[in-house]
């Protein structure tokens, strides 16, 4: 088995709303995959289905070789804390730390203690009175200390300050080296998280628009900027994913790798060229009128 997560043609409807539309992607065992996209793109729905908290309307999901929904052996190997996770009435931190090991066979008390201390999570305050950052901290404790073979993080650092985020990155990378596992992480802090990812999946309006190795994803699009008329001339013939104009200057994200034609044209006309960052890609696909599925070769599917 090379893939920890395999999603094939998954559609999820809520009434007349199609939250996921024929979504397919895979996450190899041991990788850290970024699940990126705008609010409402379908990230949380995908994670809910992977974790067995929801079922697809159609399509197939396999986690570690089994369909997760109501499959006890598989569910015990998945950790997923929702970004809006609800806790039982009157729960405090010690309730969470006492019960989580009962469900997580690989639970690490040391990791939990380190994170609780590092995040300075209050012990006596009821969880329902926690701030957004404190709720994120509890979710991170559950996600990392569980040491689940498949760990899903849904916007793990909402409300966390920069020091807390640094602690998260540090413990995540160190503990993954100690106990390797597969991580799927959704976030809007793309530039900050980019270096973590081996692989990225970008979803837009319920469809997968990019599924690539992180470094290969950079070749999917180019950023061109300069005088508007000239930028338009250089970008001619390329699919423009996003366009921003300020006065006479223009910046566009165009699909496709930086081949010699466009690089020469840009040099000739004084247009600045740079590989599109992951953040550029997410923004581009999130604002584009004509969503398209793109692979490394730029094939529209």
């Amino acid at each position: 088995m090379t893939n920890a997560i395999e999603i094939r043609a998954v559609t999820r409807r809520f009434g007349r709303v199609k939250a996921l539309d024929e979504v397919s992607f895979t996450v190899p065992v041991g990788s850290i995959c970024g699940l990126l996209g705008r609010n409402g793109a379908g990230k949380t729905t995908v994670m809910s289905i992977i974790s067995g908290q929801d079922r697809p309307t159609s399509g197939r999901v396999e986690v570690l070789g089994a369909t997760p929904f109501e499959h006890a052996a598989t569910l015990s190997k998945i950790s997923y804390v929702r970004d809006n996770q609800r806790y039982p009435d009157d729960y405090r931190l010690h309730h969470v730390l006492r019960i989580a090991p009962e469900f997580a066979p690989n639970w690490s008390t040391d990791v939990a203690s380190e994170l609780v201390d590092g995040f300075q999570i209050p012990a006596k305050t009821p969880i329902k009175k926690f701030s957004r950052g404190q709720l994120s901290a509890v979710a991170i404790v559950l996600g990392l200390a569980s040491r689940a073979p498949v760990t899903l993080f849904d916007e793990p650092y909402l409300g966390l300050d920069v020091s807390a985020r640094a602690l998260f990155y540090s413990v995540l990378l160190r503990d993954l080296a100690t106990v390797p596992r597969t991580v799927l992480l959704s976030t809007h802090l793309i530039e900050e998280s980019e270096s973590l990812f081996d692989r990225v999946v970008i979803v837009d309006r319920g469809r997968v628009v990019v599924e690539e190795e992180r470094d290969d994803a950079r070749e999917l699009a180019l950023s061109l900027s300069g005088v508007a008329d000239v930028v338009d001339r250089v970008a001619a013939g390329r699919a423009v994913l996003q366009s921003t104009r300020v006065g006479g200057l223009k910046s566009v994200i165009v699909r496709g790798p930086g081949d010699s034609d466009i690089l020469n044209a840009a040099a000739l006309h004084g247009v600045q060229v740079a590989p599109a960052s992951l953040q550029d890609l997410v923004m581009a696909y999130g604002t584009h009128d004509e969503p398209a599925t793109t692979t490394k070769e730029g094939v529209r599917a």
């Binding site: 908290q53 109501e70 006890a72 996770q85 806790y87 009435d89 729960y91 989580a100 469900f103 997580a104």
Partner: peptide, 20 residues
């Protein structure tokens, strides 16, 4: 009421099946 209303989501987060 609370044994299901607020505990069910957390139980699923921890990895319980609905049946269990």
């Amino acid at each position: 009421v609370q044994s299901i209303a607020t505990t069910f989501p957390f139980a699923l987060t921890l990895g319980a099946t609905r049946r269990d």
